[in-house]
């Protein structure tokens, strides 16, 4: 039985890779132009009376390399500074974000599928998420002292809400016909949860995770500005206080690069997991 309507439509992925590459080259060229302009202005226009607060990008780049990434191969090119400050920051950032995900996703699915609990809990959640997590730093200092727990708690408190709210929304708005299928075919509750509800909510869960990841970086740095002995935030404020301005700028650039890389990694992971979603959205 082969009819004209019977051919399979488009295989996965394919063609897009080229245009994605061209698109990203274009985006990067804008950044290059901006950096080039900065370099030009700081080395030729204002170079006569040296401006220490805005060092030329060339110097920032060299400092970035020397301060963070000129270490031995055996340590992945990380310098002692990077090991002392970058790694603890990264650990707190990813730890806080992962813990928020571990709490927020199951709670969000449970609340999203509940009939009544959501009505009671929603106002509390909306109130709590309106509190800027940074204002709670003193509270967490009282609770945990100047410790890693304090900093991780600040991150968790700040990033839990986008994950929770997005997951709740995704779990609540599962296509009703998917649930009809589950009922007609007598699909058990655990299978329904794992094979129908969670995958159906996955695009929203990932949206929450993406928002949370960029929030995590902000909160990580902020929490390291007070009473810290390590971390990129600590390094940054220390460099500022001791007028090591290229070092300060290198930390700023490092944070930007870190955010970009983490977000890209998450997007790549999401593309793998949610291939079905991106493919069906395009065909609609």
């Amino acid at each position: 039985m082969n009819t004209p309507g019977d051919r399979a439509v488009i295989p996965v992925g394919g063609r897009r890779a080229g245009s994605v590459l061209a698109g990203s080259a274009l985006r990067w060229s804008v950044l290059l132009v901006v950096v080039g302009l900065w370099q030009f202005v700081t080395t030729t226009v204002v170079a006569a009376d040296y401006e220490p607060y805005f060092p030329p990008p060339g110097i920032v780049a060299r400092t970035l390399y020397e301060t963070w990434f000129s270490g031995p191969v055996s340590r992945g090119f990380l310098t002692p500074t990077a090991i002392d400050h970058l790694l603890p920051s990264l650990g707190r950032l990813l730890g806080g974000w992962a813990l928020a995900a571990v709490m927020g996703i199951p709670a969000g699915v449970a609340l999203g599928r509940s009939k009544y609990a959501i009505e009671y809990v929603q106002p509390v959640i909306h109130f709590a998420r309106s509190i800027p997590a940074t204002t709670l730093i003193p509270v967490f200092i009282v609770l945990f002292g100047f410790s890693t727990s304090m900093r991780v708690s600040v991150i968790i408190f700040g990033v839990l809400w986008p994950i929770l709210l997005n997951t709740m929304d995704g779990a609540r708005k599962v296509e009703p016909s998917y649930l009809d299928i589950a009922r007609v075919f007598g699909v058990s509750r655990p299978v329904r949860l794992l094979l129908i509800i969670v995958p159906a909510a996955a695009p929203r869960i990932f949206a929450g995770l993406r928002i949370s990841l960029s929030l995590s970086i902000i909160l990580m740095v902020t929490s390291e500005l007070v009473g810290a002995t390590d971390g990129i935030g600590f390094f940054l404020s220390n460099a500022k206080k001791s007028f090591q301005l290229p070092e300060m700028w290198s930390a700023i650039v490092l944070l930007g690069a870190l955010g970009y890389l983490l977000n890209t990694a998450l997007l790549v992971f999401e593309r793998r997991i949610l291939g079905w979603y991106h493919n069906t959205e395009e065909s609609r």
Partner: peptide, 18 residues
Amino acid sequence: TLLPWLSVRDNVALPLRG
């Protein structure tokens, strides 16, 4: 009513779970 995240085979096998 077909689940886009499951392969054709797993969609067909879904009612047989459990």
